[in-house]
Design a protein around this nucleic acid. Structure first.
Lengths: 199, 199
DNA sequence: CCTATCTTGGACTGGTCGTTCCAAGTTAGA
DNA sequence: TCTAACTTGGAACGACCAGTCCAAGATAGG
């Protein structure tokens, strides 16, 4: 009986993610979303609810499509430290060059805005951190099993370090930091974790 | 002949710093500034210019009054690694407890917002990073001279690491991260830098 | 006291915000 | 084909935004 949607909500949400990611959700108006997606205010509100709900949906989509696959690859990578090095090298490259250069990370960017207080969004921020840290910890435990890291290294604490470092990279890259500086910062901490004999 | 200002611009700017720091400059309207400072729109615009100029002035004030003294103390501290440990312990404490708990760092918060594109503000962000890194580097060189760090440590690169880590702490603290997690993350990286025999 | 000069309070502007609403259009089962 | 259910475009809403403007008030030299 009913009419059916004349657009693809999934594709529209992807557009919203790009928009919020590049410009920032708080500074992006509904009018911008309407223009970027090509659909009308009515369809937007009927499909996603208000702006807060839309922002939360976009953030979840970002976590699922952008962050989680990379985290999964890191956790599943059996190489140990080289896996972590590769993660950061690809991170810096993505943040400083290519299509998304200087966009930073949508989750990182959301940390400072007013939306961080919305429970639905706060939850995604925490999930992102937990998952990133877990992936780092898995890679560090692999490194420990392979004897690549010093004996005193606590994988749990070191995973927190690397997660915080990733936020620092995301943050500084959005403000124009050079890839060389960021890579040097990453290299130094990984050198610190590396077992002396490996150097 | 002329009348004289009926308020103290310095004290007013301090109020603005607090307001922008806690709530975020982008989400704070001129009306909020008027209410917080107690002065009128006319005086505000006559004294500081528009909002961009006000935000830049507040950011510079924050760097001068909040960041720079701490950086100077770190650079002048002769203890080496303990100075860095102390810096981070005080940082985490300030970010998670007390008057400014969960406010994060105004400079860090500004990294993600639209104001980061304004040259006058971008300049302050870069100055903050340069000065933080220089202070870290000075402390690391002291640590190296005292034999507290491993021989392979590059003070320049390690200083970048610690600066990025500080941004991570600032960022996550604003979103509610626990002091324990943050401290663990800090401890792990400093352990990594520490010379084996010191452990 | 007078007056030139600056400050101040508050009304006001045009524009944008998120959101609501409704008439017109579209669909698919009866 | 008729109609109930849903979508869609676009107008309209009140609230807020940064910024402007001016009359009224305050000041200090003459």
């Amino acid at each position: 009986m009913p009419d059916i949607k004349h657009f693809d909500p999934d594709a529209a949400l992807d557009q919203v993610v790009r928009l919020f990611w590049e410009r920032g959700a708080d500074v992006t108006g509904i009018a911008d979303v309407v223009q970027a997606t090509g659909l009308s205010r009515s369809s937007l509100y009927a499909t996603f609810g208000g702006k807060e709900r839309l922002q939360a949906a976009a953030l979840r989509r970002y976590l699922e499509r952008q962050s989680r696959p990379v985290f999964a690859a890191l956790a599943a990578d059996g190489r140990g430290l080289p896996a972590i090095t590769g993660f950061f090298e690809r991170l810096v490259a993505a943040r400083c060059t290519g299509e998304h250069a200087r966009w930073g990370c949508l989750v990182t960017n959301t940390h400072t805005g007013p939306a961080r207080a919305i429970p639905e969004i706060q939850q995604v921020l925490d999930a992102h951190h937990t998952e990133l840290r877990a992936a780092m910890r898995a890679a560090l435990e692999t490194a420990r099993d392979r004897g690549q890291v010093g004996p005193g290294l606590d994988p749990h604490a070191a995973a927190e370090t690397l997660a915080l470092l990733a936020y620092g990279v995301n943050l500084r890259s959005r403000a124009g930091a050079g890839a060389g500086d960021l890579l040097a910062g990453v290299r130094a901490v990984l050198d610190g974790f590396t077992r002396i004999e490996e150097r």
